[in-house]
Amino acid sequence: MIDVIVVVLILIGALLCLTAAIGLLRFRDVPTRLRAATKPQALGLLLICIAIALSLGTWQVAAFLLPVMLIQFATAPLSAHVVGRQAYRNGTIDEESLLVDELAEQKRADEAAAAE
């Protein structure tokens, strides 16, 4: 029974990682690519790590995989934030499509400082 659960978790995790890769290739703008890169990929890795822990069934494996998952969940949103902010500053994000624009004042202040 555990083997069936492991296979299902690995297949779902691999499918999520595949959809993340396809999303990076197919989506056109930065925010949707960032969403495709972070959300399904992190969940896919989580499911694959759970499947590995269930398959091997030892606490040592679970203790080894826990930091892997925590680092992934800490770095994926952080890197997406940094890439998104830089894309905004470069002007590659369509500012009219944003619902909330918290960086508009900062961008105007940076442009004014650069003009001086």
Rank of each mutant, 00 (worst) to 15 (best):
I2R: 12
D101M: 07
P40L: 04
I50F: 08
L45V: 12
L25T: 06
K39C: 00
A112K: 07
M1P: 14
L24T: 03
I10W: 02
I50D: 02
A104V: 14
I2D: 10
R28W: 01
E111W: 00
A80T: 09
T38Y: 04
V83W: 03
K39R: 01
K39L: 11
L34I: 12
V82S: 04
A42M: 08
L15P: 00
I22W: 15
L70H: 00
C49V: 13
V83M: 11
I22S: 03
E102C: 04
T38V: 15
G13W: 01
E116T: 01
I93C: 10
S79W: 01
A87M: 08
A115V: 02
I22N: 00
A20D: 05
L9I: 09
D101F: 04
I22C: 10
I2Q: 12
L99K: 06
V4Y: 12
D110G: 10
D94Q: 14
Q60R: 06
Q41I: 00
M1L: 14
V8Y: 07
S97V: 11
L65W: 05
A76V: 04
V83P: 00
W59G: 05
A113R: 10
Q60F: 04
D101G: 06
Y88C: 04
D29Y: 03
I71T: 13
E95S: 15
A53S: 15
G23Q: 08
L45Y: 01
K107T: 07
L70S: 09
D3L: 15
A115M: 01
Q86R: 14
D94Y: 13
N90V: 12
A36K: 11
L9C: 12
V68D: 01
T32G: 09
Q106I: 06
Q72E: 12
L70C: 12
R89K: 13
P67M: 07
I93F: 10
I10S: 05
T19Y: 08
F73Q: 04
A36W: 06
P40W: 04
L18P: 01
A36C: 09
F73K: 03
L43P: 00
C49N: 07
I48E: 08
D29R: 09
I71M: 11
E95P: 04
I52R: 01
N90F: 15
Q86I: 13
R26N: 05
I5K: 03
